[in-house]
Design a protein around this nucleic acid. Structure first.
Lengths: 168, 168
DNA sequence: TTGAATTTTCAAAAAATACTGAAAATATAT
DNA sequence: ATATATTTTCAGTATTTTTTGAAAATTCAA
């Protein structure tokens, strides 16, 4: 596969992957584009490359900035704003993971814990099964969550991955 | 929180979580409903409980069956089909993880490897940066993927989680 | 200041996704 | 075989999500 095809296919595929996992396609594609770009790109560059509107580009860039996985960059003597991606895979995946865990998973974990701890739920077969399942789910997700936190908090990842490999 | 509220909130929240992660809301809600139900439920039970159409219930149930996280159950002397959830958290999350990895992640991993190995990509600054980023991404995802496989392959999870905790 | 360049906003349009409901197909009892 | 219960299908509809594009706001150089 030659470069232009490989590039297009990568951006396209990254967009599809995003949308399958709840990330807007354009947002994922802009990240992909900036990830592989050796220099900062302006909004116009991005609009042209992905054939999207200014509004869409602007909103998507803002979201990527909010996630902290792209940065603004000014170029001397140029009024336009330019953007660069955080290129360290570990850093940006860490940020995405942390934010999504906090925004989307934590509310569920909190609800599970609240229900699991509730004294108001009775002893009928139905309510017992409910409590049992919620407790198991709560315990399981806490374990996974802890593991994720520890993975993410470890400085680089490679280290831990190697460590884990050793023990399996 | 009393049982009916807790139940409703759990099903609702599980549906929201699903849709944030690319799983149809109804499908997630049906799984939630079956997870906490002490007895098998019929299509009509599910339709009534979630106020959804027969068509929707049928299609969603089929998908959950395809994933292997719910099962059909017949009740003697009753013509209707009933459904039960796989209740072991480790088992059903393992199945979901495996299927989604295979369907959605593997194509991306394959593409990354193909590009990373391509001899057709040149030496311009742009193409070098491209190859570099693809290689890093490929290496990183392979590590994560291997870790995930090993986690999922370990018989129960608890074991490994404890092991990991020990070494952190 | 003024005005041109640039960015932001957001109502409206388009696209993607999910859901309904009734007809068709299938299964089962008599 | 026939009638009845049950399940499946899918065209049409509704809903949600995404995108556009042009007006408003902002920035900045002269």
């Amino acid at each position: 596969m030659k470069y232009p095809d490989a590039k297009e296919k990568f951006i396209e595929t990254w967009g599809i992957l995003g949308s399958q996992w709840g990330v807007n396609k354009t947002i994922a594609q802009i990240q992909a584009l900036l990830l592989i770009s050796p220099n900062p790109l302006s909004t116009d560059d991005i609009m042209k490359e992905l054939t999207i509107s200014r509004g869409n580009a602007n909103m998507s860039l803002r979201e990527l900035l909010d996630w902290g996985i792209i940065y603004k960059k000014t170029i001397a003597g140029d009024r336009k704003e330019y953007f660069v991606a955080e290129k360290d895979v570990w850093k940006w995946s860490h940020k995405i993971g942390t934010i999504r865990k906090q925004r989307e998973l934590n509310p569920v974990l909190d609800l599970l814990q609240e229900i699991a701890a509730s004294k108001e739920i009775g002893k009928s077969e139905e309510e017992q099964e409910f409590t049992k399942q919620i407790k198991e789910l709560s315990q399981f997700t806490n374990q996974v969550s802890q593991l994720a936190d520890k993975l993410f908090l470890s400085p680089k990842g490679e280290l831990l991955l190697k460590l884990i490999k050793m023990f399996i």
